[in-house]
């Protein structure tokens, strides 16, 4: 028999290293006499898209098209410490550092533009790679020309900035602290499953997700994270386990260690709760880790709703389901 059920999970995640650990990111932006605008950061893009988001932030602040921005590849000889791509921190930390560096460069564009065009900020327009006076839009200077002007003065059209918020180390006896993490991300997920009581197989039918993220800098990338994170959580809930007995891994390969495939993936429906109320760039919070946390308990609760049995050990594999169903039949019969 196939039985359906829905389960809900609501989760939180305090992001950044927190706990008083020094957590910061340094970024720099330079406009040269030729070529694109260079953003220098050591933030590692592990596929999540931080380089894309940083491009958007720099382009937004500097009022240019994203294709005018180039990010330097991470290189310890050329870039300063950005902290790790972990703790759900890069958009918030390096994003803020890039935003501040871009604001520094924007201010320099106003500064050198005012000198070159004989005016002050209120009379200036800075956008689309050009600086000009409101009353004389045809007499513009490009950002690159302003870089040359700065160079003639022996200066660079460059700004470096860092983002370094305070957190507190919790009290060692009580764990209490005023600001243990910079902020929290919240999410609710509802999973619907169908459990085959003959085989113990769990089919995931759909996932509904609502994510409190402040602001989605790139909504499609957020949805990608939600789906990828949820599938990872499905693996944890239903199939993944590296089995080690007496120190020896019994399944060190992808024949013995199963992960969800595209065929296991249900339709995903997501809503992004965007109140722009966080302290990250443009009101954003981090989302990389929280999006994997809800799936496992949502599925465990959905399985309970479907067959009335709770599982307290992960993963909830078909053999465990069958065994539990038989035990229940035994006690009922």
């Amino acid at each position: 028999m196939k039985k359906r059920g829905r389960g809900i999970a609501t989760i939180m995640f305090g992001f950044g290293y927190g706990e008083g650990f020094p957590d910061h990111s340094i970024a720099a932006i330079e406009i040269k006499e030729q070529g694109p605008i260079l953003v220098k950061t050591a933030a590692a893009d592990v596929g999540q898209g931080v380089l894309t988001v940083l491009t958007q932030i720099a382009a937004e602040v500097l009022r240019v098209a994203p294709d005018r921005i180039v990010l330097s590849a991470g290189d310890t000889a050329l870039t300063k410490n950005a902290g790790s791509t972990s703790a759900t921190r890069q958009t918030y930390f390096t994003g803020s550092a890039v935003q501040k560096a871009a604001e520094g460069v924007l201010a320099l564009l106003y500064h050198y533009g005012s000198l070159a065009l004989h005016c002050n900020h209120p009379e200036l327009v800075v956008k689309d790679g050009r600086v000009y006076r409101y009353d004389r839009p045809d007499h513009f200077m490009s950002y690159q020309e302003l870089a040359r002007l700065a160079h003639e003065k022996g200066e660079l059209l460059q700004a470096e900035a860092s983002f370094f918020p305070r957190t507190d180390a919790p009290d060692p006896e009580t764990g209490q602290g005023e600001r243990v993490y910079v902020a929290y991300t919240f999410m609710t997920q509802i999973a619907e499953v169908e459990v085959d009581t003959a085989t113990g197989l769990v089919e995931v039918l759909r996932f509904d997700t609502a994510l409190d993220l402040g602001k989605a800098l790139n909504p499609q990338a957020v949805e990608g994270q939600i789906e990828g994170g949820t599938v990872m959580g499905m693996g944890m809930a239903l199939m993944e386990e590296q089995v080690i007995k007496a120190g020896i891994t019994l399944n060190p390969d992808l024949t013995g260690y199963l992960i969800p495939t595209a065929l296991d993936c249900p339709p995903f429906y997501s809503r992004l709760v965007e109140n722009k109320d966080a302290a990250g760039p443009f009101g954003a919070k981090g989302i990389g880790e929280p999006v994997t946390i809800g799936a496992t308990p949502a599925l465990a609760n959905a399985i309970y709703a479907a067959i009335g049995i709770r599982f307290f050990e992960l993963p909830i594999t078909p053999d465990k389901i069958i065994k539990a169903l038989r035990q229940e039949q035994g006690t009922n019969g």
Partner: peptide
């Protein structure tokens, strides 16, 4: 929170539910 951190900004968990 369990750490005693009082949440002030961006607490929209009820909205997600």
């Amino acid at each position: 929170t369990p750490n005693g951190q009082v949440l002030t900004d961006s607490v929209n968990v009820r909205e997600t539910i």
